[in-house]
Design a protein around this nucleic acid. Structure first.
Lengths: 143, 143
DNA sequence: TATTGTTATACTCTATAACTATA
DNA sequence: TATAGTTATAGAGTATAACAATA
């Protein structure tokens, strides 16, 4: 690690937290929060999941996911149904409207961020795209 | 914008929020939260500031910054002193101990993240470093 | 009257601990 | 007894609205 790498952890942590603050704050007009969207996204990628699987996938504790699922169910974006063979478990599925939020509202969502990204050079967008992949690998690598 | 760029806003937003969740969760043993550290960092970069200036710099509302400053003052990491000429304003300064947190504890902080970064290739670290610069420019560009 | 900062209050997101139902 | 999920409770971080002090 060179000198820049030495500061990378601190710089990256601050940049990510500040950026997350902006992203949460700038999308108040959206139908779902980023936390909710992240869970919807997991269901869209992996199909129906139990709350426990969703919590593991999103790296939050089960009670946290219970609340996210409840809020999404209130909005009609997911449905909860009993597991066919195990009475303890629940199957959470994306509803038609939830699918619509994932698929159909990409244009409207993240309007602020899309505006900022449009102003960047193509090379900078490639760098951010690369960083997204690296971040997702870092997160996925954590058991 | 090509097809990948089309999805970049959504992918980036999810990656940042998930990553921020990890970063906040993984540093519970640290003396200060990332929010507190971010404010300390601003004072270290810019010198003493008023609460209003800090709030603007960190892009939070003044009452939010009041709470952050109060928590940092409780920890002895900043001091609050009256403005010399304007009785309404307050000057917030880094204390010696606050400076120590900024300068001296880099090694101990972000241990989890540093471990993950060590496992990356040098090229990946460069990509993340580039992304940090781009993110900071995006944030700084917002009035 | 306008500005700066604080207090009061509330909401979101997350956690741990305790509980219920089922296996 | 062990597992899956929920409820109860708490704490951090953020916001808006109302207030006090000063300019």
């Amino acid at each position: 690690m060179n000198e820049n790498d030495d500061r990378l952890a601190g710089d990256l942590a601050l940049a990510v937290v500040r950026f997350a603050r902006h992203l949460r704050g700038r999308r108040k007009d959206s139908t779902v929060s980023l936390t909710q969207l992240s869970a919807l996204n997991a269901l869209a990628s992996d199909g129906p999941l139990t709350p426990g699987q969703l919590a593991a996938r999103e790296r939050v504790q089960p009670p946290s996911m219970t609340r996210v699922i409840a809020s999404l169910a209130d909005l009609g974006l997911v449905s909860r149904e009993p597991h066919p063979t195990d009475g303890r478990q629940v199957i959470v599925s994306l509803s038609d409207e939830g699918e619509h939020v994932i698929n159909g509202e990409a244009e409207a969502r993240e309007a602020w961020l899309r505006g900022r990204l449009d102003e960047l050079s193509s090379a900078d967008r490639d760098t951010l795209g690369g960083a997204v992949g690296i971040i997702n690998r870092i997160i996925a690598g954590q058991g």
